[in-house]
């Protein structure tokens, strides 16, 4: 662990040049970058949202983050792609890295970081433009200047999420005309079109009906081999069904913290912590 960390530090000088060279049309050689946090904490002004987070997210696996609401799950996801920067007064401390990238470094290229680390929100957030434009806007900003290439990317991603057949004849129509589940799949496709390596999903099914929810769940499972997925869910059955690894968080004295991490099957089978056991049994939380 310490060896790996040192390796990351050695590389961190090259980081800016690395991110410049890597073209977003190509995955870097090792897809298997892992996300590591060490003593990570987040403050909103004087309020400490979570503290003392030490984890390593296994690459190419689905990791579920569960815990009672208010324990800082969303805050943690928003830290990983530095979306918390948008909140005045927020302050991240500790270490957080993704592969060779030091996420907390002031020189970290946020645009490239957020391309590599995609995010899907609880509420589907399509832009109120046409389906096509929803893809073209981010792809263009990430340097894909040829419209035909952007179209190919769009088509491929829409196929990956199983939405292509449903929308291929209405690409020029507003994305807002799609159903909630379709919108969420569109948002996942939009994120995938940027070829991310890590996908952050914040309760991606909780605003959807059971059928759409089931579709998204299958979709997430199908992403497992090619992406690292870190998913917040309040649905323990869902976490049990689809995740490989589990992070259980809790609120202690008003501050979020991790209480247990490990393989999902093991934690559900034999939780090490009493709190985890009570939470998983639905006694608390």
């Amino acid at each position: 662990m310490s060896g790996q960390l040192r390796l990351r530090k050695d590389f961190s000088n090259n980081e800016s040049s690395l991110t410049k060279v890597s073209d977003c049309s190509e995955r870097p050689g090792s897809v298997c970058a892992s996300l590591k946090a060490k003593n990570l904490s987040l403050h909103y002004g004087d309020f400490k949202a979570y503290d003392n987070v030490n984890i390593e997210i296994e690459p190419c696996k689905i990791t579920a983050l569960v815990g009672p609401s208010g324990c800082g799950k969303t805050s943690f996801l928003n830290s990983v792609n530095r979306l918390v920067d948008l909140i005045p007064g927020s302050k991240l401390r500790g270490e957080l890295s993704f592969g060779n990238t030091d996420i907390l470094s002031p020189s970290c290229d946020l645009i490239e970081l957020r391309r590599k680390i995609g995010m899907v929100f609880q509420r589907p957030a399509p832009f109120p433009f046409s389906i096509k434009k929803n893809f073209h806007i981010p792809l263009k900003e990430h340097g894909i200047s040829k419209s035909s290439v952007r179209d190919e990317r769009m088509e491929q991603s829409l196929k990956d999420v199983g939405l292509w057949d449903e929308v291929k004849n209405r690409l020029k129509q507003s994305a807002c005309n799609l159903s909630g589940g379709q919108q969420q799949r569109l948002c996942i496709a939009r994120t995938l079109s940027l070829k991310p390596e890590l996908l952050l999903m914040d309760e991606p099914c909780s605003a959807l009906d059971p059928v759409s929810s089931e579709k998204i769940e299958q979709l997430i499972l199908s992403l497992r081999d090619n992406y690292t997925v870190l998913m917040v869910t309040h649905n323990l059955a869902q976490a049990k069904r689809i995740s490989d690894n589990l992070l259980v968080c809790w609120v202690k004295d008003g501050t979020g913290c991790l209480i247990e991490t490990g393989k999902t099957s093991e934690i559900f089978f034999a939780p090490a912590e009493k709190l985890t056991k009570e939470y998983l049994q639905g006694v608390r939380g």
């Binding site: 948008l86 645009i111 391309r115 929100f121 957030a125 832009f127 981010p138 948002c187 940027l194």
Partner: peptide
């Protein structure tokens, strides 16, 4: 309304 979605896609 759209800053989180925009920023999360790496839009400046």
């Amino acid at each position: 309304q759209f800053k989180l979605a925009g920023a999360s896609l790496g839009l400046s």
